[in-house]
């Protein structure tokens, strides 16, 4: 495995499978235990460097690191030296001087973790960069699919929504393709990037046309700021054409699952009765995120690498 996890494209089939298998072993090792903690990363320091608010992702990484007995520092851009105008480079050098073994970075600018990786010795884990990637989200999604459906190879995954601005979609396309899934992207044409023709996916503008052939439907969050920028006429029209409601869910094959990276806009891209249905894996995704992030930290920082 590479030293950093910046993109889902950094993972070949062997790496990705190893992470998922390790997550499964961690789950098995901790199942039924009263003290959910492993001593693996004792004495190692993990910094959560969050330039953008994301309570869920930060908490997930924090808990993952703590369960591996690492020391965890949360460095949020707000209320820190960053808001006083310190540069990313100076922040990186400061963390480096403090001896961070891993830096988990969330940033609103695409590529910020790539820059960071050039300035530090420790491992950089991309926890979401702008509209680029969110590789651990893709890993937890893959893990969730594998647990529910038993496999990834040949699984038909339909990803619906704002692909243009979605780091979740980019990482999922790369990782799921590596793992052998067949991917279909569904969105209004305004929310698909120019150049998508080179992606290893099918593209459809018609959600109803593809649902009957989907083993997995992954709904993407529609950001509030898209609603006023003419990507689509109104939230109501978007919801009508691209939202997953009970009627559409009924068209899915029997074992198909419904995923969402959260946070959801209930009633917008996903109806409440779908989000709360037995097909929904949304809560599982959160707990699987913990296992997968433990696996990533373990494999990047674990005993044999140093």
């Amino acid at each position: 495995m590479k030293r950093h996890l910046l993109s889902a494209a950094d993972l070949d089939l062997g790496d990705a499978t190893l992470i998922l298998d390790t997550a499964a072993q961690i789950d098995a090792a901790l199942a039924g235990r009263e003290v959910k903690k492993l001593p693996t990363l004792r004495g190692r320091t993990v910094v959560n460097l969050f330039f953008e608010d994301s309570t869920r992702t930060r908490i997930s990484f924090e808990l993952a690191a703590k369960r591996l007995s690492a020391d965890v520092i949360n460095f949020a851009a707000k209320g820190s030296s960053v808001s006083k105008g310190e540069s990313l480079k100076d922040t990186a050098l400061t963390l480096e001087a403090m001896g961070a073994d891993a830096i988990v970075c969330r940033h609103s600018a695409s590529g910020a973790p790539h820059r960071l990786a050039e300035w530090v010795q420790g491992s950089v884990i991309n926890a979401g960069d702008g509209t680029h990637e969110h590789p651990t989200q893709a890993l937890l999604d893959a893990y969730t699919i594998r647990r529910r459906l038993g496999r990834l190879d040949g699984v038909r995954v339909t990803i619906v929504g704002d692909v243009l601005h979605s780091r979740v979609a980019r990482s999922n396309v790369l990782l799921l393709d590596t793992l052998g899934a067949q991917i279909t992207l569904v969105a209004p044409p305004t929310l698909l990037p120019v150049g998508i023709g080179s992606w290893p996916v099918e593209v459809s503008y018609d959600l109803d046309a593809v649902l009957a052939k989907a083993d997995v439907v992954m709904m993407l969050r529609v950001q509030q700021e898209r609603m006023n920028a003419s990507y689509f006429p109104s939230a109501r029209e978007y919801s009508r054409r691209y939202g997953l409601d009970a009627r559409r869910m009924a068209v899915l094959p029997e074992d198909a699952i419904v995923m969402h990276p959260g946070p959801m806009n209930r009633g917008m891209e996903i109806a409440a009765e779908v989000a709360d249905s037995v097909r929904s894996t949304i809560v599982e995704q959160v707990s699987n995120g913990l296992s997968v992030r433990m696996a990533v930290l373990y494999l990047l920082l674990g005993g044999d690498s140093k």
Partner: peptide, 8 residues
């Protein structure tokens, strides 16, 4: 193609 991939 590249802007789509790089998320810029």
């Amino acid at each position: 193609v590249l802007s789509a991939r790089l998320g810029l």
